[in-house]
């Protein structure tokens, strides 16, 4: 990762405000931001390790461990709840065999909460590996489950 950081810094600069863009880039590259990379990030941006750790742990987006091979981000916010989101969440957890906020034991799929995707009139909604999905019902859930089983 040291080389990745160095190359990124060379392109985008090493000021403090580059920390979030760098973390996004690293997660894009590697799938997560490993604790082992924190000292390298801190050195590159002239920050303390505690500072970098504090930022990584503050934001829900940054993962400190590799995610599942597939990620289902299911909306839990009010508008989706108004359209039966809680029942879909319970079904999704059962059908995918993983509790909300967890990655399944075999690493195949993670079910993550998201608070609003801005598709609030056509919920319940999810991002399945980044693809937006709306009006999730039992049939749609089954299609999602088959998709992430592959």
């Amino acid at each position: 990762m040291e080389e990745f950081i160095a190359a990124w810094i060379a392109r985008h600069g090493a000021t403090r405000d580059r920390l979030l863009p760098l973390l996004h880039a690293m997660q894009e590259e590697a799938g997560h931001v490993d604790d082992a990379w924190v000292p390298g990030i801190a050195r590159a941006l002239n920050l303390s390790r505690a500072d970098v750790h504090g930022v990584i742990t503050f934001y829900h987006d940054f993962r400190r461990a590799p995610p599942g091979r597939h990620v289902v981000k299911l909306c839990r916010a009010e508008s989706c709840q108004a359209r039966g989101g809680a029942a879909i969440e319970a079904s999704a957890a059962r059908r995918l065999g993983v509790a909300m906020g967890e990655t399944r034991g075999d690493g195949q799929v993670a079910l993550e909460p998201v608070y609003c995707l801005g598709l609030c009139a056509i919920g319940p909604n999810a991002l399945v590996d980044g693809r937006p999905v709306a009006r999730i019902d039992a049939d749609m859930l089954e299609r999602i489950a088959l998709e992430v089983a592959a």
Binding site: R16, L19, L20, P21, L45, G54, V55, F58, H60, D61
Partner: peptide, 23 residues
């Protein structure tokens, strides 16, 4: 600038700190 999943960053001063690379 891309956020990182923190609702509170919609608060203007938290948003400024986030752009600056802080919590």
């Amino acid at each position: 600038r891309e956020g990182a999943g923190a609702y509170v960053c919609g608060e203007e001063t938290a948003l400024l700190d986030s752009i600056e690379g802080k919590r």
